[in-house]
Design a protein around this nucleic acid. Sequence first.
DNA 1: ATCATTTTGTTCTATTTTTCACAATAACAA
DNA 2: TTGTTATTGTGAAAAATAGAACAAAATGAT
Lengths: 208, 208
Amino acid sequence: MITNKNCIIRLSRYKNALYRLQTLGFVKVFSDNLADAVGGTASQVRKDFSIFGISGNKKGGYQIDSLLEKLNSILGKDQLQKVIVVGAGHIGSALMRYRGFEKEGIKIVAGFDIDPAKINRSSPVPVLPLEEVKAFVKSNGIRIAILAVPDIAAQQAADLICVSGIKGILNFAPLGLKAAEGCIINNVNLEIELENLIYFVNVTEKTK
Amino acid sequence: MITNKNCIIRLSRYKNALYRLQTLGFVKVFSDNLADAVGGTASQVRKDFSIFGISGNKKGGYQIDSLLEKLNSILGKDQLQKVIVVGAGHIGSALMRYRGFEKEGIKIVAGFDIDPAKINRSSPVPVLPLEEVKAFVKSNGIRIAILAVPDIAAQQAADLICVSGIKGILNFAPLGLKAAEGCIINNVNLEIELENLIYFVNVTEKTK
DNA sequence: ATCATTTTGTTCTATTTTTCACAATAACAA
DNA sequence: TTGTTATTGTGAAAAATAGAACAAAATGAT
């Protein structure tokens, strides 16, 4: 089994680049075009494809449409992914209003919050009371949740949604969470991303 | 020079864990405590410290306060980092309202947008016309920008702020940007993060 | 048809990152 | 003291990842 997260991220980037190339009218692509498009090497593009049994044509490159089909299937994009957002604060609400996911086949179907003032069953993406999350997850077959609650509530909320049947959590709380058995947590930590950026800006400035 | 991004991310996590431990009343910590706290190995904690010349006490572990001082200095947290947000849409506005950065010594000092309707010079974080970005960056010595504009505008906006003197960009546009010479770009791509999560949820489900 | 050229697919090599293992040493106990 | 134990710091080993190189195959030109 592939455990290389960067490799999967590259597949996503290839996919995105391929859509752009397709829009521009291209129907086939070579490994070095893709490498240029995502900022990698042609070797690595071919290696990545080889790992997943994707093959092209000697001298003919890769057919963009069939390549996209294969990448989309690997990335689980052959079916609509329904996602919930837990926490309807600034970040959570912004995510619920964000339309960019839809063109990626990702649909935010509901938000949940513990604060009654945030509940709104009639908005485009309804915001429901947190107590209803378990029933909702079960009856709608949701597997993925975005967690955007304050630090203090994060672990508790994570535990709750794991028990509710969620298999993967994208965690925005700036705090490492302990995953329950059978649940994967990926962290998006903006503070850490910024710190990282600041570090590398600092060191490249110093070494110059 | 250290180029290992994950290593720097771990330093941030150690730092955050240390603050939590400090709050709980601890004054010293052992490598295995930290490993537990961030989900790594004790070896790696010590190796990471060793790389940056951080040393503790044989049998005595690490003094939390001096350890934090060293980590904060490495991560550039010994001075307030002023950051601007380019793009005052849903994500950009949410970031400007997000108070979590302040306790990390990161202050969003202004937002910029091309849409006159978004301009608001009197809000807590003023939103200014994009034309003013260069002057603002220069006169306030800003080095870091968060880019939260729509796809189509992203490369152009990135070019503009690089020319304006920005050294590091945290890019939210779901699109790989070409960095101008002397400018570092880190990408935060929520679609890709979700795809990644979905992939790993799928494979762990299948292999079980 | 033959040859030259292009591009894949994969093996082999290099580099990077992580883990292991253990000597060195500080703290404490007897 | 002397011995025992706990923990660091690091060099060496292992594992994971990336890159280079090249044979094989397909295309097109002469």
